[in-house]
Nucleic acid binder design. Structure first.
Length: 437
DNA sequence: TCTGGGGTCCTAGGACCC
DNA sequence: TCTGGGGTCCTAGGACCC
């Protein structure tokens, strides 16, 4: 038996934990560049604000309904997530942290009433972190996800499901008839692994509810759709096909991509941005003690500006040997950029992705043909990178940068907009909340 | 005027090899 | 006139997740 625990409207709940005045208010958290809504309180959902709604389209609710919009404060959310996850761990013996606000818990070997146990853990999470959670329990991870959806929906829309399923829903504790009843009232698109495309195809074929899907023959599903959907159907039927991952597997790629604060046309500006993105990706790479073998760089115009000439291009640049060196990675990214850049476009976004990652310890050695410069490079660079990271950790990001990143802040038209960020309450001394008597 | 970021997995098709 | 079969590797693109 598995549980899935997830924080309700997680980013909004993190903000509310430190600002009680936000309770009961419509609140959204905005993406980078304050572009669109990526988290919504129930009150905001009730206004009809959808996930990903562009800020400029919902902005009028500020005046009319007191909508509060905040810039994303990922440092806060990451720290709150750590706190929540450590409490969730008490639910069972093995835990998989699946995303910033969700974790699976393996409940095998746990005796007693699972629903009651989940209720107590939920209460503890709320008390110790201030984050309200929904908990779903089922025989497989897909069923636990489904149960979690029912728990959240019953909480948010009373009347949609039996009242006792609000917050905590244990599908494993239901009779076959009860299970069938909730599956019949749940749209097939709510199943984990069924997205908009497959959902539409399923409905087209007359498969409208979860109950319809669970009754399909897995082999036919594989033939008509894919092995992925076949696994989903089997999981819904109670056959586990998706393993728990206690340890996060090492990353296969590391990305740093950003939309620009305003459109960029000059190669010079793109070079600055790509330099910064490549350096930031390299820092992440060294953080997991990895090397990269190939660097992908891409640029693209805004698909939303249909009046603009569109251009989207990417290329990957192989490195002479796998490395974690900021300079080598940045040089490769800049070579790639030069190859794909076309003058005359309004570029809206760029990114650097490090591919072919491998543990640094597995790095292949190079024959020394007596080139003193090469030999010195190999030994001196890791120390240079260490020094770079140390200085930037101690004195703040951006204290030491590569020259091609550009020095004049006011020229950086591509920098991100973030106008409504709350304090980093839990990770910066200067931002710590102060109680006044 | 203004529309996020970071991932994984699967599949089809092309290039190439013997 | 008639033009195979089996395999690998790589890439791009689609689909999904949060």
């Amino acid at each position: 038996m598995y549980a899935l625990v997830d924080g309700n409207n997680f980013y909004v709940s993190c903000e509310r934990a430190f600002r009680a005045s936000l309770n009961g208010q419509p609140v959204v958290v905005l993406s980078n560049n304050d572009g669109c809504a990526i988290a919504r309180s129930n009150e905001a959902k009730a206004l009809g604000i959808t996930m990903g709604a562009p800020w400029f389209e919902i902005r009028h609710f500020e005046e009319s309904h007191g909508l509060v919009a905040l810039s994303a404060n990922f440092e806060l959310y990451g720290d709150m997530s750590d706190r929540m996850m450590s409490v969730v761990a008490g639910l069972g013996h093995r835990q998989e942290v699946y995303s910033i606000d969700e974790s699976f818990v393996d409940l095998s070997g746990i005796r007693g009433d699972l629903t009651e146990r989940a209720r107590r853990v939920r209460q503890r999470i709320l008390m110790w972190t201030g984050i309200p959670c929904g908990i779903g329990i089922g025989q497989t991870k897909t069923l636990a996800k489904l149960a979690n959806f029912i728990a959240k929906t019953a909480e948010r829309k009373p009347g949609s499901y039996p009242e006792h399923l609000a917050q905590i829903c244990n599908l494993g504790g239901m009779s076959a008839q009860q299970q069938a009843a909730v599956m019949e009232t749940t749209d097939v698109g709510e199943v984990w692994g069924v997205g908009p495309r497959i959902g539409a195809q399923l409905r087209e074929a007359g498969v409208k509810t979860v109950q319809d899907l669970v009754q399909l023959d897995p082999a036919s599903v594989r033939r008509r759709w894919s092995v992925v959907l076949e696994r989903t159907v089997r999981e819904l039927q109670g056959v586990p096909c998706i393993e728990m991952e206690d340890e996060p597997p090492p990353k296969q790629e590391i990305a740093y991509t950003r939309s620009f604060g305003s459109p960029v046309t000059a190669l010079r500006d793109l070079q600055e941005a790509v330099t910064e993105f490549a350096s930031r990706a390299a820092v992440k790479l060294r953080g997991q003690a990895g090397h990269t073998g190939r660097v992908l760089v891409f640029i693209r115009t805004s698909p939303f500006r249909t009046q603009d000439k569109q251009h989207s291009a990417s290329t990957t640049v192989p490195l002479r040997r796998p490395t974690d060196d900021s300079l080598a990675i940045t040089q490769a990214a800049l070579v790639g950029l030069r190859a794909i850049y076309q003058a005359g476009h309004r570029y809206a976004k760029a990114g650097v992705i490090l591919l072919e990652l491998a543990p640094a310890a597995e790095g292949q050695q190079e024959l020394d043909f007596g080139d003193p410069q090469a030999a010195r490079g190999v030994t001196a660079r890791p120390r240079l990178m260490q020094a770079l990271d140390l200085v930037n950790n101690r004195y703040g990001r951006g204290t030491l940068i590569l020259g091609s990143a550009g020095l004049a802040d006011e020229r950086r038209t591509w920098s991100m907009k973030q106008e409504r960020r709350t304090p980093r309450y839990t990770t910066r001394w200067e931002d710590m909340p102060v109680l006044r008597a």
